[in-house]
């Protein structure tokens, strides 16, 4: 028979994981519902998911494409692949954080695993990303850009992005429950970082001393790991892969430990 004993339970980091496995159907339903709700009432339905990145790319390509024409062949592919990785990380983390900070009311009313919303946000982001890759393919075919076996590396890249985003979302969500302005601070940081990360421009346009500082920007590694197989048509360097995997795993472990150790206080605080 099912038993609950508040005094005897596995360490929070393990307990939360076991509970999430038990509630896996809830996570799947939440992911599905986020999508359904977002697109139910719009005429073009899921096509918005394709259209949005396409339009974004076309506008930015017209604006900046000519500037980087010589240094970046197929600028639109460069731009959109970077943009997709960037949007995935930032939108997932922002969505997870805001559902925790403002919409976590359910956690106060009934028991569900505390990380449910955050995992669902990552799942939702993954679906958006995969659909958006469809838009990228349209542009690639239109521009006659090569598709090479390096694409087989993409699932690994996406896994790395997802692991990193989950970790960051857990860290930020914990912070946002304790300090409500975390949401706003992060929003400002994201805007600034967008211009400090080579997404719209090639790293080569930066002065040498600046481009060395890029190592300090963790987003650069993550954008590159996704963009290189698509735009440069080769596998990322081994050292880049190691860096990206380590960054993602460290973020996830830190986020998981922090979140689960504070999770009991969430219902008190939310």
């Amino acid at each position: 028979m099912l038993e609950y004993d508040s005094a005897k339970r596995p360490p929070p980091a393990i307990d939360e994981f076991l509970q999430l496995v038990r509630y896996r159907d809830l996570i799947l339903l939440m992911v599905g519902n986020i999508l359904k709700n977002r697109y139910k009432r719009s005429l073009l339905g899921v096509f918005w998911m394709l259209l949005n990145p396409l339009l974004q790319t076309i506008v930015l390509s017209i604006a900046f494409g000519t500037i980087f024409k010589s240094s970046l062949p197929n600028y639109a592919v460069y731009l959109l692949s970077g943009l997709l990785a960037w949007n995935f990380i930032t939108q997932t983390t922002q969505y997870a954080m805001s559902t925790m900070a403002y919409g976590g009311g359910l956690l106060k009313r009934i028991y569900i695993p505390r990380a449910t919303y955050i995992i669902a946000a990552v799942g939702n982001g993954l679906i958006n990303l995969i659909v958006s890759i469809g838009a990228l393919l349209i542009i690639i075919i239109f521009l006659n850009h090569a598709i090479t076996p390096a694409w087989f590396f993409l699932p690994v890249s996406i896994m790395i992005l997802a692991i990193f985003s989950l970790g960051l979302a857990l860290l930020l969500s914990t912070a946002s429950v304790f300090f409500t302005d975390t949401v706003d601070i992060y929003q400002v940081l994201v805007q600034a970082l967008f211009f400090l990360t080579p997404i719209m421009y090639p790293p080569s346009i930066l002065p040498l001393e600046w481009s060395q500082l890029l190592i300090l920007n963790p987003f650069v590694i993550l954008i590159e790991i996704f963009r290189i197989p698509i735009h440069a048509n080769h596998l990322p360097d081994f050292s880049l892969i190691v860096n990206a995997v380590s960054l993602a795993l460290i973020t996830l472990v830190a986020g998981w430990v922090l979140f689960t150790s504070k999770a009991d206080q969430l219902a008190y605080r939310l």
């Binding site: 038993e3 508040s6 106060k108 009313r109 009991d264 008190y268």
Partner: peptide, 15 residues
């Protein structure tokens, strides 16, 4: 009902 954990003490529930 497990929504909050006790600050001190023990809650036991069967079933």
């Amino acid at each position: 009902s497990r929504v909050i954990r006790p600050t001190h003490g023990r809650v036991f529930l069967r079933g």
